[in-house]
Design a binder for these strands. Structure first.
Lengths: 237, 237
DNA sequence: CTCGCAGAAATCGTATGCAATCTTTTCCGG
DNA sequence: CCGGAAAAGATTGCATACGATTTCTGCGAG
């Protein structure tokens, strides 16, 4: 698997923390499903791939463990998280609680620049939906998440923004695992409606639309336990 | 400073992660203000105190950095966080958004055992308030936080519970830094009112009471910037 | 043929060493 | 006496080494 292919020779901010850079690349890979849930991420392999020692690879994996994207078992190693339906429900319950509030906060802080950023974001999102390549779906999930992250950044609360980063990343995993095929295109129009409410400073409407939007995303999931849950756990698949 | 004094010879679950144990002890020390904001936590010193190598100490500090209790500067080290008034406001804004929802969720899941646990918690809280020792205030802040953590555990959402752990810990820091003296005793009665609403399954009332409670806690803070903020930053105090 | 069990290989947890960076002290010219 | 440069000391970032634990492999007994 070639995760670390695209080396950023110039753009790579040289002196910044290498562990953080590795975490970012791994997170992208996990969220994009280039790394399937359950995949083992051994310290040595990660270190070799990114050309660092196990020490820094380990630090990156520890960060991802905190974010809930990786699960580590003592003396066994780190694995891409494989969220259970229950975990998935909790992720969306958390989002239902937090995101309407974020939308409310953002509605009061929208500037012209923000609107432009959202427009660009939604354009890109639309392009990915139109596209029909093999990884169109991946890009679509990613772009959809980026909309919510952009919103969180506008809301202006760094703590909530970090919470949302975690929730969006975990949502992407959940959607990739439990999502049914193609209803997600309706999410695009919902994003546009939310933006419209934000532009008008209609915080109440933005908040309500956001709540419905999250409900729709979750409703598109199939969270029934497949086969015997005990068996699935035992086999780790 | 003697942080690692109380060694838990028997209770210490032997094979569990040592870094995690160190993190827990450091977190308690920070939240209790046995470690003042701004205090340097050098890897070597922490390692020596807990009798582990720098590797393990470093891992513990990294965890605390994620939780926002510690701030690390590259090539300089780790310091107990010194939240700015703006950060403090964000902490409470986050709590205002999340905790009413947690109260709502908890109201629907209360069992007799939970009620008993809350009663015990509130008793202890009352005892600490009555007490007038030198570290009564510390214990009081801690116990008050524990009430909110207990509530979060009852709500049954592991993700939100973790968010609340972070928010409560950071709140304790903020209260210790910016809190005015003695109004916090009124928090105790508010806790009791919230418990009453929870017992009655009155989720709406519990949620509303919680919101007011958080407002009261924040209202007790003095979040005006002391002296010139730029100067304060420069001096790191 | 399957099962079980040594031994080997792989992987993790932790300690320690070295270079790079930051901080403090020292020392000298003004 | 003061200011500033240079050296000494302390601390971090990272790599590597080694024992401990787990997983894999191969072989023999049933």
């Amino acid at each position: 698997m070639n995760i670390a292919d695209q080396t950023f020779p110039a753009a790579d901010s040289a002196n910044e923390d290498r562990a953080q850079a590795i975490r970012d690349q791994l997170r992208d890979a996990i969220v994009d499903r280039r790394l399937a849930p359950g995949t083992k991420l051994s310290e040595g392999e990660v270190g070799t791939l990114f050309d660092v020692s196990r020490t820094v690879a380990r630090a990156a994996l520890q960060m991802l463990t905190f974010e809930g994207l990786v699960r580590t078992e003592r003396n066994r190693g780190a694995f891409v998280a494989n969220p259970s339906p229950e975990e998935a429900r909790q992720v969306f319950a958390s989002r239902r609680l937090i995101e309407p509030g974020i939308a409310t906060a953002a509605a009061g802080r929208m500037t012209a620049d923000h609107v432009a950023a959202f427009k660009a974001q939604l354009d890109e999102e639309g392009r990915f939906i139109a596209e029909r390549g093999p990884n169109a779906r991946r890009s679509e999930i990613k772009a959809s998440g980026d909309f919510h992250l952009l919103l969180a950044s506008v809301a202006g609360n760094a703590i909530l923004q970090r919470f949302m980063e975690e929730l969006v990343a975990r949502s992407s995993l959940v959607i990739a695992l439990y999502g049914r095929s193609g209803v997600s295109s309706c999410g695009h129009s919902e994003h546009m409606n939310i933006l419209e409410a934000l532009e008008n400073g209609n915080s109440e409407r933005a908040s309500a639309l956001m709540l419905h939007h999250i409900d729709h995303i979750e409703a598109d999931l199939d969270l029934r336990v497949r086969s015997g849950p005990a068996l699935r756990q035992a086999l780790e698949f």
